[in-house]
Amino acid sequence: MSDFESQPWVPSETVTPQATSSSWWGIVITVLIFLIILFVALRMIRRLNNSAMRGMNAPWARVLDRQILFGQQSLYLVEIAGKLQVLGGTDHHIEKLTEIDDPELATEILDELANRPVERAEGEISKLMQKLFSGKKRTEKDSFSKELERLMKEVEK
């Protein structure tokens, strides 16, 4: 073994890392880039959701209520061409179960839907997201009450 290998290592200078202004600028720029990417992603998600919702706003067909049965099985109360129908559906199949012809029963169901509080968490979450990301405040209760009145008039005819 040589003399060099047997001697302990002694550092000639102690190096202490110093925070420089360039490292702070790097962190600030990284955070700004992250925020810009996040903002762009949220805008894209919002536009995709709006385009998907526009496709569902057909004047002749509207989903009034949904009840989840088991897993992917659901019951839907829909208005199709002015008639109330009950549909059963899964991810791969939808079937008409019955049509509600009785005007009194239809009025009672629509009245219950109009006066019922939102029970599902998804309703609360969607309302919160709509308030956060929409520039305009929408009066959902006013539009729903007008739509309910229109449906009741159609059922009474």
Results as ranks from 00 to 15, higher is better:
M1W: 11
D3W: 08
D3N: 13
F4K: 10
E5L: 09
E5G: 05
E5Y: 04
Q7H: 13
Q7K: 14
Q7P: 03
P8K: 03
P8W: 01
V10W: 04
V10A: 05
E13G: 03
E13A: 06
E13Q: 08
P17K: 14
A19C: 02
A19Y: 02
S21A: 05
S22Q: 13
W24T: 11
W24E: 05
W25R: 15
W25H: 11
I27C: 10
V28P: 05
I29Y: 12
L32H: 02
F34M: 11
L35G: 10
I36T: 11
I36M: 05
I37E: 01
I37W: 01
F39E: 06
A41P: 00
A41C: 09
L42T: 03
R43I: 11
M44D: 13
I45R: 03
I45L: 04
R47Y: 12
L48P: 04
L48H: 12
N49D: 07
N50R: 07
N50E: 10
N50H: 07
M53C: 04
R54S: 10
M56P: 02
N57R: 15
P59D: 00
W60L: 04
W60A: 03
R62A: 08
V63S: 12
L64A: 00
R66G: 00
R66H: 00
Q67D: 06
I68V: 11
Q72G: 10
Q73W: 12
S74P: 00
L75G: 08
L75Q: 05
L77G: 04
L77K: 03
E79Y: 00
E79F: 02
A81D: 15
A81F: 14
A81L: 14
G82V: 05
G82N: 06
K83C: 06
K83H: 15
L84R: 07
V86H: 03
L87N: 01
G88L: 11
G88A: 09
G89N: 06
D91H: 11
D91Y: 09
H92D: 13
H92W: 07
I94L: 12
I94S: 10
I94A: 10
E95M: 08
E95I: 06
K96T: 14
L97D: 02
T98R: 10
E99Y: 06
D101S: 13
D102H: 10
D102V: 06
T107Q: 15
E108C: 04
I109N: 02
I109H: 03
I109D: 01
L110Y: 02
L110A: 00
L110P: 01
E112N: 12
L113R: 00
A114T: 07
A114G: 10
V118H: 11
E119F: 15
E122H: 08
G123N: 01
G123P: 02
I125S: 00
S126F: 06
L128E: 09
K131C: 04
L132G: 07
S134W: 01
S134D: 13
K137P: 03
R138M: 08
T139G: 08
T139P: 02
E140A: 11
E140H: 12
E140N: 14
S143R: 08
S143P: 01
F144H: 03
K146R: 15
E147G: 14
L148S: 15
E149V: 07
L151N: 06
L151V: 03
M152K: 14
M152R: 13
K153H: 07
K153I: 01
K153Y: 02
E154R: 13
